[in-house]
Design a protein around this nucleic acid. Structure first.
Lengths: 153, 153
DNA sequence: TCTGGATATTTCGAAAAATGAAGCTTATCA
DNA sequence: TGATAAGCTTCATTTTTCGAAATATCCAGA
């Protein structure tokens, strides 16, 4: 198992690569924060993520694509959220095959609590300046919008 | 299942919230890109992610914390990577309990291929200006560094 | 208008992934 | 020196996700 030093190399970091790792790190950090926050809330982890993603009513299939899971996985999670009164399924008026997941008031309250607390911890913990945060948010929003273009239902 | 409109509300988006969603979206987007890229590479998904995370040799426990998984999960994944010749385990010279995961040349080659291709697709697909990308990368690197402070082994 | 192909979601068994308790070794501290 | 904590591993169990098949709906082209 132990080999000589010559058979391995150290890799270099380029700026964009650092950006990727930063995004990964931030994503994982936020996830671990969310795990910590709601140890008192009996909602499974993935379902909690869905609640955060539901900034507006979305189709099950679109949400699955955004979150990089299969539709069948999203179906199961939606069942869970629905049984807990956090979302309702509504027919998409534009397409009778499709369903919209929409937060209930209970779901929206949970979402607000999750997001506000995660965001507060994020700003305090990561020590970004106002400029950095605004710029990061602006680019991040643009990225989000551009990605939506690629996954629009 | 179908309820009246009065029982649900629409939520508003604040900028920092958009930033969070952007990060989530970007993370998922990169992951789906990586899924697409290496359909010809017989390495499971999580193990591929580990390869990207190994910008330098890291302890199994530290890596597990960074990636928000349990050490036992990381052990299994490391076994896989080792059996494929992508990493080697080396004793941490500072602590004989601990192991460092270090990329082999094969692992480093795979990492370069994954990262370069993902980054190229990222820049072309998401249409960021050079300023936006550099600023995003800079903040992202800072975020990464700050998060490392919270998970240092 | 009709038809064939594509799409949206669901079901449910199978597969994959992750957990978590227990164990061994090593490090730290009083 | 002894007690406690930390790092990693093992392996049985649980959880999560996949994926094939099915049904309903949509849509473009003939």
């Amino acid at each position: 198992m132990i080999q000589s030093h010559d058979s391995t190399i150290d890799t270099l970091i380029e700026p964009e690569l650092g950006a990727l790792l930063g995004v990964f790190a931030l994503h994982n950090f936020i996830e671990s924060l969310m795990d910590d926050i709601d140890s008192g809330i009996d909602v499974p982890h993935f379902e909690r993520k869905i609640v955060v993603w539901l900034d507006r009513p979305k189709r099950i299939g679109a949400l699955a694509r955004e979150m990089n899971v299969l539709p069948s996985t999203m179906t199961t999670a939606a069942d869970q959220l629905e049984s807990r009164g956090l979302v309702v399924r509504e027919r998409d008026p534009d397409d009778r095959r499709a369903w919209l997941l929409k937060l209930t008031q209970t779901g929206a309250d949970l979402r607000s609590a999750l997001v506000v607390m995660a965001r507060t911890l994020l700003c305090e913990t990561l020590d970004l300046s106002a400029d950095e945060l605004n710029s990061f948010a602006r680019t991040s929003l643009k990225i989000h919008a551009n990605i939506q273009k690629h996954t629009t239902c």
